[in-house]
Amino acid sequence: MEAYLSSLSLIGLIGRLPASVAQGLIWGIMALGVYVTFRLLDIADLSVDGTFATGGAVTAMLIIAGVNPWTSMIIALICGLLVGCVTGFLHTKLGIPAILAGILTQYALYSINLAIMGFKANQAISVDKYYLLISSRNIPPAIVTGLGFVIVVIAVMYWFFGTEMGSALRATGCNPTMSKAQGININTMKVLGLAISNGLVSLAGCLSAQYSGFADVKSGQGAIVIGLAAVIIGEVLGESIMGKKLNFAGRLIFIIFGGIIYYVIYTLVLWLKLDPNLMKLFTAIIVAVFLAVPYLKGQAKNSFARAGKNSAIKEGK
């Protein structure tokens, strides 16, 4: 035990923190995509696991082919939008439940992503060989670039969801019956929301591949859960700090914090020399607990067990 404790160096931990901030910023963008479907549209879209890898795969192959990274990024973003449209089509036009539509898209994307990468499981884009927008080789500029992307994404989201169309999209997620009665085509709005969400996730995948220097077909595995974790951590944090003053922009900013906190925890787990393979278990537990707490709080106030207890007291049993 003593040997274990003395092997942990605090300086080592502090040294790793900037990298987790950079990664947290990239995954924060992914979490904003998850927020659009999960919170605004009230759909749990599982296609994002595939879309994240698609973003990386498209970017890597284009950069290897000599395309400018900015152009590659825009193409990756468009690919994400299209993925969202496919899930939306399966859901709204073919009547497949949203969660299953997402699973089908994600499943199909595994093959498609492999095909994009020439049927290799990964493709390297070394910063030594190519001009990249962001790289883990040089952390401070990576944080600045990540922050720049985050600011632009939040600004665009804040603007869009404040427009007539964005407001119609939010109404669709909140109350579809009311939306239809007010003349909103809710199917169009669902497809639009899924497209925006997957576009953001693909953008995050694009940045992540450049950051780590390679695209991997498995890079998106469990992305939905990490995204949810970031959304939930961010919201809980935001609501406890800001209370009722937490507005839409604040919420988006706290989701980015959620992503950063997630990666700080991840770094902590590695620093404690725990097996990083356990991280998926930790993440699942965190998400399950945070999703369960509001429900259990409601149950505590309004349960049969409580009613039974009250009745027993009255009866004098």
Binding site: F160, G162, T163, E164, M165, G166, S167, A168, Q182, G183, I184
Partner: peptide, 10 residues
């Protein structure tokens, strides 16, 4: 209701 919803502020 019944009008086009565009990118103007809500």
């Amino acid at each position: 209701r019944g009008l086009r919803r565009g990118l103007k502020w809500q």
